[in-house]
C-alpha cells in the first residue's frame, strides 16, 4: 500500500534490525504499524505481528524533520512521530521512534537501546576505563597517548600529549 522509502539507520538500529531476524522485531512491528496509522487515525493501536509490545503510540502532531524528500505524493498525509513501547529482548529493552511526513517514513530512531550489562557488552568486548585512583600506579601509569577535552595547538605545549611526543621525538 505504501512504498517504503529508503530508511536511515544508525549503527544501533542496524544491529537491532539484525536481531529482528531471530527475535521479535520491534522495528518490523512499527513498520507494519506505521502502515496502518498512515491510513487511519493515528491513535489506533493495532500491531498484528507476533510482538511483545502493544505498539502504543504517542502522536505529537509535531512536524517530523524529513531526512530524505518524499519521492512522490502519497495518498496518506499523516505527519508526526510514533513511539513504540519498550520491547524486552534478551539483550534488554528496545524502543524505537518512527518519524512520518506525509505518510512516508522519514526516519527511524532508536530511543532506547539495551544497556551494556548484557550480551551486547560481551560481543563488543570493549574495555572500560580504569580509574587511576583504583590502581597503584597513580600518575606514573605508563601510557602511549592521551585523550582529553579538545585542545588547540596553543594549549598543546602545556598538555600531557606534548610531553609524550617530545619523549618519542627526542
Amino acid at each position: 500500500m505504501v512504498n517504503v522509502p529508503p530508511l536511515r539507520f544508525d549503527r544501533g538500529a542496524r544491529r537491532i534490525a539484525l536481531w529482528g531476524l531471530t527475535t521479535i522485531s520491534t522495528v518490523a512491528l512499527l513498520f507494519s504499524y506505521k502502515t496502518s496509522t498512515s491510513s487511519s487515525t493515528a491513535s489506533e493501536a493495532a500491531p498484528s505481528a507476533t510482538g511483545t509490545t502493544t505498539g502504543t503510540t504517542t502522536t505529537t502532531g509535531a512536524t517530523a524533520t524529513p531526512v530524505a524528500p518524499a519521492s512522490k505524493a502519497n495518498s496518506s498525509t499523516y505527519t508526526g512521530t510514533v513511539t513504540g513501547t519498550s520491547a524486552d529482548t534478551r539483550w534488554g529493552p528496545v524502543q524505537v521512534r518512527v518519524s512520518v511526513a506525509s505518510g512516508r517514513i522519514t526516519a527511524v530512531d532508536v530511543v532506547a537501546e539495551p544497556d551494556g550489562n548484557g550480551r551486547d557488552r560481551e560481543i563488543n568486548a570493549q574495555a572500560v576505563p580504569t580509574l587511576v585512583s583504583e590502581t597503584l600506579q597513580a600518575q606514573s601509569a605508563q601510557i602511549d597517548m592521551v585523550s582529553g577535552a579538545t585542545y588547540t595547538s596553543e594549549g598543546y605545549v602545556a598538555s600531557l600529549q606534548s610531553a609524550l611526543d617530545q619523549a618519542g621525538l627526542a
Binding site: 572500560v128 580509574l131 592521551v146
Partner: peptide
C-alpha cells in the same frame, strides 16, 4: 593494546583513568 590515558577534566595536568 595501546595504553590510553584519560585526562582529568578538572585538572588537565593529570590523568583520571587509563584504558
Amino acid at each position: 593494546p595501546w595504553r590510553i590515558g584519560i585526562e582529568d577534566p578538572r585538572d588537565p595536568t593529570g590523568l583520571i583513568a587509563t584504558v
